[in-house]
Nucleic acid binder design. Structure first.
Lengths: 118, 118
DNA sequence: TGCGTGCTCGACAGGTCGTAGTACTACGCT
DNA sequence: AGCGTAGTACTACGACCTGTCGAGCACGCA
């Protein structure tokens, strides 16, 4: 899948947090703390689109960008990808389970139980 | 944590598969399919050591390299790191659980159950 | 008809990674 | 005593990624 850079992730975070598709200008405004040139934002949005993390649709002259997938889907995919790296998936999964905090273990358990029911 | 490159991963794979610590020469021999210069292998081993993925100890004039952590630990850490990226860990975990294959779900369930018992 | 908005292209610097040459050192065999 | 060999450290370089922009082009409104 390929990881994201610092700025790329910031921008994805903004878009993931938003329900509507945003223009480059709007993203730039929301990321104001970094005082970036507008073209910088555009370039990164472009790259993210080319990498498949965003979809864009026309809105007049401007593009509106929206995430191609939810952040959860992305995170889950990263996790599965990491898992694919090992030969012994069972050992890695066991380790992982041990590393998850108590409440999260509970969440996982529940999710797995629901799976079972289907 | 930071990901590994192609060759770096190959070398880690070799060392992870080995129970004993290896010298650069030995690693080079095991990775023979790629016909690398000995210095290439040394350089990469060096970088991996500097990044904390390997430990090395003297053996005469040579160094012996061994993984600092097991592959499973590494994979589990990658997974936890991915998980840290999200705001809604519960959603990501649920997604993840759904993405895991049946037998693996079983393994996870068992690992979580054991956790519970402790 | 000119400014603002937005786009596309191209660029450059800094970092990482694959790949390797060079130069220096210590050791054993002849 | 001297040479070949194994091994090290240091340096390098090109490719690619990422952050960061500037230049230049297009379009619509005042």
């Amino acid at each position: 899948m390929k990881g994201l850079g610092e700025l790329e992730r910031s921008i994805m975070d903004i878009l993931w947090a938003q329900s509507a598709a945003l223009t480059a200008r709007e993203v730039g405004r929301l990321i104001a703390d970094r005082d970036l040139a507008p073209t910088t934002v555009m370039t990164v949005l472009d790259r993210l689109t080319r990498k498949g993390f965003l979809h864009r649709t026309r809105d007049g002259r401007a593009w509106r960008y929206a995430p191609a997938a939810s952040r959860d889907a992305y995170v889950a995919e990263l996790m599965l990808e990491a898992l694919d790296m090992t030969g012994d998936r069972s050992a890695a999964l066991t380790r992982f389970a041990q590393g998850v905090s108590g409440p999260e273990a509970e969440i996982l358990r529940r999710a797995l139980t629901e799976l079972e029911d289907e």
